[in-house]
């Protein structure tokens, strides 16, 4: 069980958080203009990386804020944490 540094509350146990899947997938501004395939790309397709992954997390049993986490999925090491709308410091 890892420890996540919530950008609003500080370090807390993983049990206080909920994972929300891949980060930086923007909802299309004009969904009606999209073909079935383009919409399916947004709706269904997600990466499943072994290694550095950009993820969304929410401090569900805390401040209830969504934020982004950069995690190495091979060893759960968290490389960075940053707020929604911000750019990650690492690539």
């Amino acid at each position: 069980m890892f420890i996540i540094n919530c950008p609003y509350c500080g370090e807390r146990e993983q049990t206080e958080f909920k994972a929300g899947g891949e980060a930086h997938i923007v909802r299309p501004k004009q969904p009606t203009e999209l073909s079935d395939d383009e919409w399916a790309e947004y709706l269904f397709m997600r990466k499943n990386i072994k290694g550095i992954q950009f993820e969304r997390w929410i401090h569900i049993h805390g401040c209830r804020k969504w934020f982004n986490v950069v995690r190495d999925t091979s060893n759960d090491e968290i490389k960075a944490v940053y707020k929604m709308g911000e750019k990650p410091l690492i690539k």
């Binding site: 929300g20 923007v26 969304r56 929410i58 209830r64 804020k65 969504w66 929604m84 709308g85």
Partner: peptide, 13 residues
């Protein structure tokens, strides 16, 4: 509530 918060915070801030 979680879903609504998600959209408010991440898609439509």
């Amino acid at each position: 509530l979680g879903k609504l918060e998600d959209y408010l915070q991440t898609e439509w801030p």
